[in-house]
Amino acid sequence: MNRPGDLAHHTLSVLVENKAGVLARVADLFARRGYNIVSLAVAPTDDQAFSRITIVVDVESAPLEQIVKQLFKLINIVEIQELSAFDAVERELMIATIEASTDTRTQIVELVNIFEGKILAVSPEAITVSLDGAPSKIDDFEALLRDYGIRDLQRTGRIALPKMDRDVPVLRAVSNS
C-alpha cells in the first residue's frame, strides 16, 4: 500500500479563497481529470478570507505540471506551491484505539512514550492514543501498533508549510511574473 511518504507522491499546498464550494471544485477537478488524491487536509489560514488545502497527489497517474496547471485554472485558487520533503515542514496527526489487555497495556504505553505520543483514554480492553509528527514517524508507529490489534484508526492527512529561508518554487502557472 502506498503511503504519503512514497516518491511518486507530491505535496501541493494550495491557497484558496475561503468560499462555499471551493473544496468541491478541487475534488471535482481531480475526479474528472483522473488524478488520484492520496490525502487532503483543509482549514482556514490566519486570514479568514483564505483557506489552505494540503493535497498529496499520486503523480504516477498524471504529470504533476498538468495537475498544477489545471488546478490553477480554478478561479478561487490563489497560489499553489509544490513542497518536497526537503523544503517543507510536514506534520500529521493520528489517533488510534488499540486492543490492550492488562498484559499488553504497559507495552503500548512504552511505545507511546518512545514516540512521544499521548494517551487519550483507557478502558479495560483498549487504549486510545494520539501521535503527531512527520508522516514517516506516524507510519512507523502505526506499524508497531498493528501487532496489538487496531480497533479504529484515523489519520488527518498531512499538512505542510515551506521551511523558512529557502526558495520554494512557486508554481503559479504564470510565466511572466
Partner: peptide
C-alpha cells in the same frame, strides 16, 4: 474581488 484570477495576456519576450 478575484485574487486568484490573472490571465496570462502578454507573453514573455524570451519566449
Amino acid at each position: 474581488d478575484l485574487p486568484g484570477y490573472h490571465p496570462n495576456v502578454t507573453p514573455s519576450i524570451e519566449s
